[in-house]
Amino acid sequence: MNDIEFEIDGKKVTASKGMTVLETAQKEGIYIPTLCHHEKLEPFGACRVCIVEVESRGATKLVVSCVYPAEKNIIVRTRSPKVDRIRKTIIELLMAHAPDAPQLLEMAAVYGAVPNRYEKDPSFCIHCGLCVRYCAEVAKKHALGFVDRGVHKEISFIPEIAAKECHACKECFPLCPTSYLQAVFVLTEALSFPDSAVKK
């Protein structure tokens, strides 16, 4: 009897202990947009697009549903003017990197995001971290990671590991919401281990 009962968009839902708000919503078929979430990976809470409004003991706050644990009697609203506004800004900011990414275009249509609102950036990476985390958590190869921080942060393959592991795996490729990951891999391959690429 560990069930946690609460409400999402007026619907009574139940979650078991340890579940997040997002997991509960997905189980119940309630849509919350996500970018950095993946069922096989630990919650990351980086893209912030799954932000929702939570009312708890009379107080309303904004939380990120992929890391917020299900709690008894809370009232979750997956959409509100404020939530929609924030999601719209986040999508617009990411479209400055990847204006043609299908996932972003889909969300842009829902939230009325306007592409080209912000000055473009030359990198397609939206820093969802799916590739980095998949490689570490599922493939357990640690062949790529984040380097630098702040606005200079980017993903990078570690040539010594990538040369040995990546050709046989490449499981991270389809995860990338943009085409950036493949580009980085091809570049690393060309610069650091061109011989093994020829052999394959």
């Binding site: 893209c47 697009v49 900011l93 820093h127 702040g150």
Partner: peptide, 18 residues
């Protein structure tokens, strides 16, 4: 602050950049 940001979440990294 754009240099101090860790770069993990979008509102801070991309928001401050813009």
């Amino acid at each position: 602050l754009t240099d101090e940001s860790c770069g993990k979440c979008v509102p801070c990294r991309e928001g401050l950049r813009q």
